[in-house]
Write a protein that binds this DNA or RNA. Structure first.
Lengths: 123, 123
DNA sequence: CTTTAATATACCTTGACACGTATATGCTCT
DNA sequence: AGAGCATATACGTGTCAAGGTATATTAAAG
């Protein structure tokens, strides 16, 4: 069994991210997750296992059910890693615009983010 | 070729994260990355290819070299995803409230999502 | 024009992992 | 104790991506 796995590998899986997003609202049982995500039960259990081993969730026993809820630490790890890059889209957006003339050539006041733009890089 | 890949799958790879961290300080050529990370050159090139396709980096041609530098958008995507979990580790509401306030004070056009400052987690 | 340097890509192999199916474990209630 | 539900795990399978090696491309230098 792989006991140490980076938080990034954990959240790379779309179904796991879906589960995590579900748990934001409140704790959920395996069956509830199974129904809401329309995912086979073993899949849910297995993903939950991975998430729990990585510290993303913890479980509480409630009769035959197990209630899963989020834990904060791994998210903070992701946030910590992200910190070193923050200047690239936050404080230095204006400075970045000077350099990156290939995009964001619009009005300086209008820096809205574009979500899934994929302008196929070609070189 | 796989043109659409989630940003999370991209940063799941440790070597890619290492490359990205390297590029924080300044732009680097393939050879420089190769030497600093002690990684075979084809590996560097392949990872850079993935990173570029995903929008994490862009390249500039400098004679026979290619200089790679960071691009902000994908990092922001990660941050956006992370936003929904922030309340779990910024128990100190001031950071969270500052974050939320910023979002709400934006003009309706930009109201979508925005982050300008890092809510420094205080645990 | 040939050689050398820098980078990209093609091909192959290997291992990890997500999925499905089946089965095991565990709890509850009668 | 036995039935039934909720969850976990074991096992086999296919896919996909990362690594390694070799080679292709492009630019500079001689």
């Amino acid at each position: 069994m792989k006991w140490v796995e980076s938080v990034f590998e954990i959240i790379a899986e779309p179904n796991r991210r879906a589960i995590l997003s579900l748990l934001v609202s409140s704790q959920q049982s395996v069956g509830e997750i199974e129904r809401q995500l329309r995912m086979p039960q073993p899949a849910v259990s297995k993903h939950l296992r991975v998430l729990r081993d990585a510290g993303f969730v913890e479980s509480r026993v409630d009769a035959q059910r197990r209630l899963y809820r989020l834990r904060p630490e791994p998210f903070q790890q992701v946030d910590d890693w992200l910190a070193q890059f923050r200047r690239f889209w936050s404080a230095h957006v204006d400075a970045l615009e000077r350099h990156l003339d290939r995009m964001e050539q619009k009005t300086p006041t209008e820096r809205k983010k574009e979500k899934t733009t994929r302008p196929k890089p070609r070189t």
